[in-house]
Nucleic acid binder design. Structure first.
Lengths: 231, 231
DNA sequence: CGCGGACTTGAAGTTAGTCAATTAGAGTGG
DNA sequence: CCACTCTAATTGACTAACTTCAAGTCCGCG
């Protein structure tokens, strides 16, 4: 962690510029303000660990700017990324005493965090906070259910098509998508190797479905054909 | 649905014989009794649909006896089973207005169900109910996270080993496991074909790690070697 | 019993993975 | 500003794992 700023928990201070806050983020802001919980900002450098699998879950986080990957490892190093967390997203909300995945900054990242214990306390007296915690967890579950279908049953091309549509929805700006993560991260998210991801992207480029400004700057030219590929 | 019995919501009536009720089930019973919510029993025949993906989620269910699969389909029929629900397990708790997976009885199955709306009401006034709903959803999320790792990164043999250990833990009785589901269901749960599942089981049998009484009656002879395979 | 679905097993085919070489690009320092 | 370096990404050739297709066998149920 490199910087530390105690901020007022007022909602207006919490939205990152150009990062429209999604429903979970709104819920997080409501929680933070309703309960008088103290929100703190921290920054992490690229590839820095935010918390590790199995560590006590002391805080809940919201991405202010940057991007975070959460993943599980097998003993031999095989990695499954469960989700990418972008500006506005909440992560680290693992009910129970410990984190079930490791969280790392993909790029230099600033997060807002609140003490998990104070959230639990707030939930104990404020039914709205309790409800929001539930729906945030439920929305993680929905994503996981969709992702199990992708991992278990989609082909490489379908996986990449789904990924592009997801990222387009979540971080496209003026039609352009600036991916924060490398090909290996994408592969570990989709259950593929980085080479297979690269080949699928090249093929979509050849077909004119997307255009590269650079390897990580992508413009989708035909979302419909991409959606058709997505099974 | 074939039988319908309105039952008293008392906890003692809800536990299936020889099926120790797991924590989520306890929570469900607490909810049902604390809130005065009416619990009803229904039975479904083998392969009967309990609810469909996208349908309004009117009820939440607990398996009394039998087994249930919940799954998602792709347009061409490829299927991903997200979870198997055995005696004591709660399913259908999808926060939001509609079910995100389809639920079907694997064998003839009896469930207890409560109106989702009455749960929400109870959660609005009873913080303990709200907390239980959250932790039940969180426990589904934990399973989904573990399963993403399996689907995305484990080999066929590792998947089958994990499956056997999970089922052994959840339904072994006197060291014997009576699987309610067919090889195709197992394959669709593990992201494999039924043939690959069959071959892996045969190989474990040849190695003396398990013994078949019949195709679905399995005794694990060496849990340690199975755990070693599970990565 | 004997029918029919479930399961097993074999052989061939396909997809994605592995290994390896090359290219592109970002960041650094002269 | 440009050369250098190092990592990320691409691409190719080959391999391995799993799927597909196709017989058979088992066995649970009428």
């Amino acid at each position: 962690m490199h910087t530390q700023t105690i901020t007022a928990p007022a909602t207006h201070a919490l939205n990152a510029p150009h990062a429209p806050v999604s429903p979970p983020a709104d819920q997080f802001s409501i929680i933070a303000s309703c309960s008088g919980v103290i929100a703190i900002e921290f920054s992490y450098r690229k590839d820095e660990e935010i918390y590790g699998e199995g560590e006590p879950s002391e805080y809940v986080y919201q991405v202010i700017r940057g991007a975070v990957r959460t993943y599980k490892l097998l003993t031999d190093g095989r990695r499954q990324i469960g989700a990418f967390h972008l500006a506005g997203d909440v992560f680290g909300l693992d009910p129970g005493t410990s984190h079930r995945l490791t969280a790392e900054a993909i790029t230099d990242t600033t997060v807002r965090l609140v003490k998990r214990r104070s959230l639990e306390t707030a939930a104990g007296s404020n039914i709205r906070v309790a409800h929001n915690l539930w729906t945030m967890t439920a929305s993680d579950l929905r994503h996981a259910e969709d992702h199990m279908l992708l991992l278990g049953r989609k082909t490489a091309m379908e996986k990449v098509a789904t990924f592009l549509l997801e990222m387009d929805r979540r971080l496209a700006n003026a039609g352009m998508m600036a991916l924060p993560m490398c090909r290996r991260d994408i592969g570990d998210y989709l259950g593929l190797t980085l080479e297979t991801v690269s080949r699928a992207l090249s093929q979509l480029n050849e077909q004119g479905i997307l255009v590269f400004s650079s390897a990580r700057q992508i413009v989708l030219r035909n979302r419909q054909r991409l959606a058709d590929m997505d099974a």
